[in-house]
């Protein structure tokens, strides 16, 4: 299990990375390598050149700006996991981090690598879709933005142009009311990729009315999805447990659900509803607990 031969470059900055990428059709970016290297070892991926962006410091940061939390693409997952700004401003992101592989994979794996890899079960992809993140890339000296809702196209397929380097992901910070989050996933072993995952973020006002809600489901179909019908039904209302499950089931009814070695399609559809419900329930409960000063 040895990779096929390739050339290795470590550009000093993003533009050099982009130039290298543009100059070689078979070139691929390597960030944390936690997905790419196994694929190469099995020779399922055989880039002619690896462009290592993991040490470009301009791609590694976490900062709050303009009501957003911006994270550089090459920021290691372990850094996000332990970051105090993430913990307070982006609790949903903080909640999913420990579920991404193991400590040893998070020590190398990056935020941008996970997003660019677009695994349907990736927790970061789910959060990006759920919170309407924006992804910024650079290509041939120009920056471009893609909303998360358009970024993920299929399993390991994204809207990122061929010769582009992902630079940043920006998550809007919600400031309207008491924020609460919920996240659940099911996998065979605790640290495996999920069969089904669900993430929810809500704000409730003093009267317990749900002001805003985002609910996303991962791993059930080719890309993470939002349950928009449920969001519409809930926002502006006082949550009613009895109506919630049918609403979620309705929202999932037309989804083209994946079946594989690990989980059947009916399982995924059914459990997606369960986990979505649990994520919303947890989010509502934690919103009530946290109070407004939390955000």
């Amino acid at each position: 299990m040895k990779a096929a031969p390739f050339e290795y470059s470590r550009p000093a900055d993003i533009d050099e990375a982009c130039a290298l990428l543009g100059g070689d059709e078979g070139a691929r970016i390597i960030a944390g390598g936690q997905t790419l290297v196994p694929m190469m070892a099995m020779r399922l991926s055989r880039p002619t050149r690896l462009i290592d962006v993991s040490r470009i410091s301009a791609l590694s940061y976490i900062r709050e700006e303009d009501g957003h939390l911006a994270i550089g693409a090459a920021t290691r997952q372990c850094v996000v996991e332990n970051d105090p700004i993430v913990a307070t401003r982006m609790p949903l992101l903080a909640a999913v981090m420990p579920w991404i592989g193991h400590a040893a994979t998070r020590a190398r794996g990056t935020v941008g690598g996970s997003l660019a890899n677009a695994d349907p079960a990736a927790e970061l992809a789910l959060v990006a879709v759920t919170l309407d993140a924006t992804l910024t890339y650079r290509e041939a000296g120009r920056n471009g933005d893609i909303p998360a809702s358009e970024f993920f196209i299929g399993p390991t397929i994204t809207a990122l142009p061929m010769a582009a380097c992902l630079m940043e992901v920006r998550f809007p910070i919600w400031r309207d009311g008491h924020i609460g989050v919920g996240f659940h996933e099911v996998s065979a072993r605790r640290s495996d990729f999920a069969f089904v995952s669900a993430a929810a973020q809500v704000t409730v006002d003093e009267d317990g009315i749900c002001r805003r809600i985002a609910i996303g489901v991962g791993a059930v179909t080719d890309v993470p999805i939002r349950l928009e019908r449920v969001e519409q039904e809930l926002s502006g209302n006082r949550p009613d447990a009895a109506r919630l499950r049918p609403a979620i089931e309705g929202a999932l009814a037309d989804v083209d659900v994946t079946a594989d070695l690990h989980a059947s399609a009916p399982y995924r559809r059914r459990v997606a509803a369960t986990l979505a419900l649990r994520a919303i329930t947890d989010a509502l409960a934690s919103a009530k607990q946290r109070g407004p000063d939390a955000c």
């Binding site: 099911v186 065979a188 069969f195 690990h262 989980a263 059947s264 009916p266 399982y267 059914r270 459990v271």
Partner: peptide, 11 residues
């Protein structure tokens, strides 16, 4: 006895 199989049986 895999999770998905058990889950489907129970359902």
């Amino acid at each position: 006895i895999k999770v998905s199989l058990l889950g489907d049986m129970i359902a």
